[in-house]
Design a protein around this nucleic acid. Structure first.
Length: 891
RNA sequence: GGGCGUUUGGCGCAGCGGGAGCGCAACUGCCUUACAAGCAGUAGGUCGCAGGUUCAAAUCCUGCAACGCCCACCA
């Protein structure tokens, strides 16, 4: 296929498949060496499913950056990987096995892990294929999985080092426990849901009456936990309660004697002012229990079932126990009253069960020593957020950071490498497995828990690059250039990467953090599986092509933190019906294709050569191209993808296609020399445009570029050189831009006049233009073009021409443009139009006059603004004079 | 409770101190041999509300309202 033999219609699916194979076979996805470095690690998608729109945007941004840098000759390395996503994957595999009638506990840990690996291979592969289909130029031969053996070694070293450095410790703490997943959940993984509940007011009898009062009343949303109460607290600022401090309560049902004390946690204004304290089942109560040395009574087992020792309550679920306790209080006349009460309840982000604050043995990372450096890295500007406002989110989180619970009671994940000797009590974290106790020789037992998924993914920038076995791989590639991610994992992931990288590598993990907008559904709600309002990027690709999807997404990357995606979905099946935005982007792809086709059809006699300015149009388009290269280059460096997308669209469609190609048609029909120059200019501008468009829309640009006569012998556009602003800056020509402005104004004026009077575009019109100075010559040089573009019978240009009779006039770009309409139209309409224009003009003049007569303005405004407005007023008044003259001539 | 963001023509969004813009939709006219997935043209907005700063405010400040998100959480 050659450029002059391009398919009439562009088939994105076909072309994209073919180009993808070309790239893969070319080997250009592999990391390359060059000046500077642009290493990017892809935020590893979970192996639990398909890519969603967030991934599509994420990966599009990264690919755009990588392709841009690769073309510039910057050393690029884009590392792809997937995340084992402990709890998420385990939940999915669990469910799959359950559907087959298999219980995880029956088949045991080994077999279950095999099932997880099967799942990983299956879905990890799908994700990789999808990323490939999007055109992402990651090095597919350099993939990582967070459970790969070498990655596991890194995780293990980190654990052991922190353990031996005293940053990892084990402790009995209140954690968010999911009784359904039977594992601890980190605070960040818990989701609050507002629920309508009740506030039960329970009476607790006092051992000895206080001032004649025999019982106090506590308010609680969770009456079932009273079985574990070991104290009652009041506010230190509540004088009414002061007499009770030090008194003893006899806890009903369990007959436990518990103290009343004061603590700052208590808000005197809420409930009854007395707070039951259950250290084992509430985080605040736990804190109070520690401060006041209260016993911790755990009443639930791992499934949130009441444990032995509570008579009829033993064996009950939380819900059953709550009912039974309330009933008991009511029976014994101890239920004071019940209020309606809205509160929020934590739920497991995976299985949605209500979480139970539960006291258990867990492993923690002490963050105190890590916080400072991670804070400094951002305040010093070493790590920069884009947009900048996310800096604050990061710093606030860092400031409030508490020790991180890293153990999970799961099977799928990195097993905690701590070994115990039950015989002699020896314990240590080991980088390599051991069977026998080095101290007493007895058999060792490894900790059953696994690590939080984020514990392993925090190492992503360096454990993917050979650390710790071969740190030389990181040379020149670490710190990485940019991390592109969603705002909701700034805390979970971004911050932790900074902490671990500083600790183990001694440097920041990345220079720039690019946070893009969350993609919402058309109605502004979050896309979610349960709502069925999510859009599958693959559906968009199949419907519109990957280029269109990418361009549509890039246009959305602005300062905004949320953005609505306008896809319509079928109400019942949730299948994609269409997306206006993507459709528009696809039109752009087609436009590029057709523009190239036009150039290709006009290449007879073409020989390669430099661009050459023969007409003002040539100078103009080259000047515009030079400015485009500057704005696109800068925009990409500053991660302003929305601006870049708009600039590219504006230039290619409105300037190159709508005007330059049209203007060039005449030159193509000219003599051999004229024709050749036009061809060379068209090919040059097309070639340069394709390069600038390529990072955003790689497929269609590659498909066209490989047909260009100027690209023959070169490998591929994706490895062609970038149009650097400096190499084009000599083309900048503001005078030419002014001259073409004149042409555009003239043609537009005639077209508008024709449309206004309902004249057929085929009707030739005689036009006289009154212009000044150099404009006369400039416009005359374009006479043929103007005549053709505006379908003129004749064109006369001069500085002292007079207005022909029965003509409509337009005043623009400092010229008067007369369209002779003798016998064609009703001049009353023209008169009415001029009157309307006059009114609008008068309004503008009045506004300016007022401004320019304002002494404050003249005294304080910048001189250039005053000059500009003064000139503007003169121009408007000049226009007004002409309008008046025309009106008076119009009879 | 604290913080962040949004509020600009029917829809989706730019602009962020000096004459209100873009894409889509609408309307009118064109199948002009690159493109009807197109071309040309037209219409449509007191830039959420109320104050303030300024010669000048969509743009800066304050307050309010609506919507959304994040963090914390009172039993």
């Amino acid at each position: 296929m050659a450029l002059n033999d391009m398919a009439k219609t562009y088939d994105a699916q076909d072309v994209e498949e073919r180009i993808l194979q070309k790239w893969l076979q070319g080997g250009w996805y592999a990391r390359n060496d060059g000046q500077g470095d642009c290493t990017i690690v892809i935020p590893p998608p979970n192996v639990t499913g398909m890519l969603h729109m967030g991934h599509a945007l994420d990966d599009t941004i990264q690919d755009t950056l990588v392709r841009f840098n690769r073309m510039r000759g910057v050393s690029t390395r884009w590392i792809l990987g997937t995340d084992h996503a402990g709890i998420a994957t385990q939940t999915k595999v669990d469910k799959r096995l359950k559907d087959q009638g298999i219980d995880r506990r029956e088949i045991g840990r080994e077999k279950f892990l095999e099932a997880c690996w099967d799942w990983t291979r299956e879905f990890g592969g799908i994700i990789v294929e999808q990323i490939k289909r999007m055109g992402c130029s990651v090095d597919f031969d350099d993939q990582k999985f967070t459970m790969d053996p070498d990655y596991a070694d890194a995780v293990r070293k980190v654990f052991c080092d922190w353990y031996h450095d005293g940053l990892i410790y084990r402790g009995k703490r209140i954690v968010n426990w999911c009784p359904s997943c039977t594992t601890a959940i980190s605070d960040d993984e818990a989701e609050y849901q507002d629920e309508t509940g009740h506030l039960w007011h329970l009476r607790y009898p006092l051992k000895e009456p206080v001032n004649g009062v025999e019982y106090i009343t506590v308010a609680t949303t969770r009456p079932e936990t009273m079985l574990g109460d070991t104290g009652v607290a009041v506010s230190p600022d509540d004088p009414d309660k002061a007499p009770f401090v030090g008194a003893t309560v006899v806890l009903p049902i369990v007959d436990r004697e518990i103290p009343i004390f004061s603590d700052w946690h208590v808000d005197a204004g809420f409930g009854s002012g007395f707070v039951k304290v259950t250290p084992a089942h509430d985080p605040n109560d736990y804190a109070m229990g520690e401060a006041h040395d209260l016993p911790q009574v755990n009443i639930f087992d791992e499934h949130a079932i009441v444990v032995e020792g509570y008579g009829p309550f033993t064996g009950m679920t939380r819900e059953q126990c709550r009912e039974a306790v309330v009933a008991w209080f009511e029976e014994h006349g101890l239920l004071d009253h019940v209020d309606e009460h809205d509160h929020s309840v934590m739920h497991c982000y995976r299985c949605d069960s209500a979480l139970e604050p539960w006291l258990s043995e867990q492993w923690f990372v002490a963050v105190e020593k890590l916080k400072g450096p991670a804070t400094d890295a951002v305040t010093s500007g070493a790590v920069k957020f884009h947009p900048d406002r996310w800096t604050q989110t990061y710093l606030t989180w860092m400031e409030n950071l508490k020790d991180w619970c890293i153990s999970r009671q799961l099977w799928w994940g990195h097993r905690i490498p701590v070994f115990y000797c039950d015989a002699c009590g020896w314990e240590d974290a080991l980088e390599h497995d051991a069977d026998v106790c080095p101290k007493c020789g007895a058999a060792l037992r490894q900790d059953d828990d696994v690590l939080d998924t984020w514990f392993s993914s925090q190492l992503w920038t360096f454990a993917t690059q050979g650390w710790p076995a071969d740190p030389s791989q990181m040379e020149g590639h670490h710190p990485t250039k940019a991390l592109v991610t969603a705002r909701d994992i700034i805390a979970l992931w971004v911050a932790r990467m900074v902490m671990s990288s500083l600790y183990f590598i001694g440097e920041i993990p990345f220079e720039d953090v690019v946070i893009y907008a969350t993609i919402l559904a058309k109605d502004g709600s979050r896309m979610s599986k349960s709502k069925g309002n999510g859009v599958d990027p693959m559906d968009l690709i199949h419907m519109y092509g990957a280029d269109a999807m990418r361009m549509g997404l890039l246009q959305l990357v602005t300062n905004n933190q949320d953005v609505r995606f306008d896809a319509d979905l079928d109400k019942d099946t949730h299948a994609l019906i269409g997306s206006q935005r993507t459709e528009a982007a696809r039109s752009f792809v087609t436009k590029i294709w057709n523009a190239a086709r036009f150039v290709g059809m006009n290449l007879d006699g073409f020989t390669p050569g430099d661009p050459e300015v023969r007409t003002p149009a040539d100078a103009w388009i080259l000047s515009r191209l030079a400015k485009l290269s500057a704005s696109v280059t800068q925009g990409l460096q500053e991660y302003r993808f929305g601006d870049v997308a708009r600039d590219l669209h504006q230039f290619f469609w409105s300037e190159f296609c709508d005007w330059y190609i049209e203007l060039s048609k005449a030159s193509l029909k000219g003599d051999d020399e004229t024709r050749l120059a036009a061809q060379r200019n068209l090919v040059f501008v097309l070639d340069q445009s394709l390069r600038l468009l390529h990072p955003a829309m790689p497929f269609v640009t590659e498909a066209i570029w490989e047909q260009l006569p100027t690209s023959q012998g070169e490998a591929a556009l994706m490895v062609a050189s970038w149009p650097e602003p400096e190499s084009l800056s000599s083309w900048i020509d503001d005078e030419a831009e002014q001259a073409i402005g004149l042409t555009v104004a003239t043609v537009s004026a005639v077209r508008a006049t024709r449309a206004r009077y309902g004249l057929s575009p085929k009707t030739e019109i005689d036009v006289v233009v009154k212009a000044q100075g150099d404009d006369v010559a400039a416009l005359e040089s374009q006479a043929d073009l103007v005549k053709r573009l505006a379908t003129l019978g004749s064109l006369k240009v001069g500085s002292d021409v007079s207005r022909p009779s029965e003509s409509a006039v337009s005043v623009d770009a400092g010229c008067e443009i007369y369209c002779v309409l003798s016998g064609m139209v009703d001049f009353e309409a023209e008169r009415a139009r001029l009157e309307k224009e006059r009114a609008s003009l008068q309004k503008d003049i009045d506004k300016l006059a007022k401004k320019l007569s304002n002494p404050g303005f003249l005294a304080k405004a910048a001189q250039e603004i005053i000059d500009k407005d003064t000139a503007k007023r003169a121009e408007l008044e000049d226009q007004m004079k002409r309008l008046d003259a025309q009106l008076s001539e119009l009879v």
